[in-house]
């Protein structure tokens, strides 16, 4: 342990880290909002954002302004919040399952949430973002419950957990297709890609606020169990012998994960692999202890999904790719790399 650094340096470091990450987040968000077709210059982007944030700048023409403020800004922010939520879920699931490959998409939770959301849409049960999120939550919990039921009470090996998750994910993806194609109208059927692959194209301010609130509360809840998650490194029995309330911590972790995944999926569909790529990259930077890994992964997830979505909507412009395509193209090699590393050990 290096305890040589002075007290003021110890205090200064987290402050510097916080200010630094805030600047990076702001810069990436600005780049994401400013990038794209329509010949909107960087200064016009800055003017539009500035005007809406109450700065004394001349407002833009309404049309250009609405592209920046009504389409791109919520899209970038939703990408940030969804990315933060999904990356955090990956960290937590990896800790409680003690499995480096666990994340909401690979465990089928995202697919279950999609099915739930689609059912709410098609049956017209309630309306609006909240009931959609409620349906997604029910579906996500159903998928999660099914995975746990199939695994049984024994502590499952890594491979079995992921295989079970993939199979359950396939089941719910099929159910989503069935509901949309069998009972939905043509409009709903066009949403198939959205619910199965995930896309940020439909981002608007209300879903940004809903996601931001839920992810924010989740991060605070997870901060409370961060040191407990560290203790899971050597299994539940060792964690219990260290005074960790294992059942309660598991419950907080799993419920938080299910709620965050559900709300994110109800806003952007099932975007995969964020919870796999980001925590692994971030661990290499800040180490495996959760009081640093959780906030750092949230920031990393936000940056990653903002960049991935910017690539998705500009790479083949004027065509737009769903963000989930980009994350999957990056995620599959990452998955194979992690699997390979585990097997070598």
């Amino acid at each position: 342990m290096t305890m040589s650094s002075s007290r003021s340096a110890e205090l200064a470091r987290p402050i510097a880290a916080t200010v630094g990450t805030a600047l990076v987040l702001a810069a990436v968000a600005f780049a994401a909002v400013g990038t794209g077709g329509g010949d909107i210059t960087w200064s016009e982007t800055a003017r539009s954002l500035g005007a809406h944030l109450g700065l004394p700048v001349a407002p833009l023409p309404a049309l250009v302004d609405s592209v920046v403020w009504e389409l791109r800004a919520p899209r970038a922010l939703l990408a940030a919040v969804a990315g933060a939520g999904l990356a955090t879920c990956g960290v937590v699931l990896q800790a409680v399952t003690r499995n480096a490959l666990a994340e909401p998409y690979l465990l089928g939770i995202s697919s279950g949430a999609s099915t739930g959301a689609v059912l709410v849409l098609v049956t017209g049960l309630g309306s609006g973002a909240v009931s959609l999120a409620g349906g997604a939550l029910a579906g996500g919990l159903a998928a999660f419950g099914l995975v746990l039921l199939l695994l049984g009470p024994s502590t499952a090996g890594a491979n079995r957990l992921v295989l079970t998750g993939v199979v359950v994910g396939q089941l719910f993806a099929a159910l989503t297709s069935l509901v949309l194609l069998g009972w939905g109208d043509a409009d709903a059927a066009r949403g198939l890609t959205y619910w199965l692959t995930g896309s940020l194209a439909a981002a608007r301010w209300p879903s940004v606020l809903l996601c931001a609130t839920v992810v924010g509360v989740a991060l605070l809840a997870l901060r409370l169990i961060a040191s407990d998650l560290d203790a899971f490194a050597f299994g539940a029995r060792t964690a219990a012998s260290l005074g960790v309330p294992v059942a309660a911590v598991r419950a907080v972790a799993l419920v938080t994960t299910a709620v965050v995944t559900a709300v994110v999926v109800s806003s952007v569909g099932a975007i995969g692999f964020v919870g796999l790529i980001v925590p692994h990259a971030v661990r290499a930077l800040v180490g495996p202890l959760h009081h640093r890994l959780l906030p750092a992964s949230a920031v990393g997830g936000a940056v990653f999904l903002m960049l991935a979505d910017t690539v998705a909507r500009t790479a083949l412009a004027p065509k737009q790719l769903p963000a989930g395509v980009v994350t999957a193209l990056l995620g599959v090699p990452a998955f194979l790399l992690i699997l390979h590393r585990r097997e070598r050990q």
Binding site: N99, A233, F234, R237, V244, R283, G287
Partner: peptide, 27 residues
């Protein structure tokens, strides 16, 4: 425990510090 193993690549100092969890406040 017998055969305590982990996938998590903790540093030696981190593992030993786990022993302090019951002595520390949660946060």
């Amino acid at each position: 425990e017998q055969n305590s193993d982990s996938d998590t690549d903790l540093a030696v100092a981190d593992v030993v510090a786990l022993g302090r969890l019951p002595h520390r406040g949660r946060m």
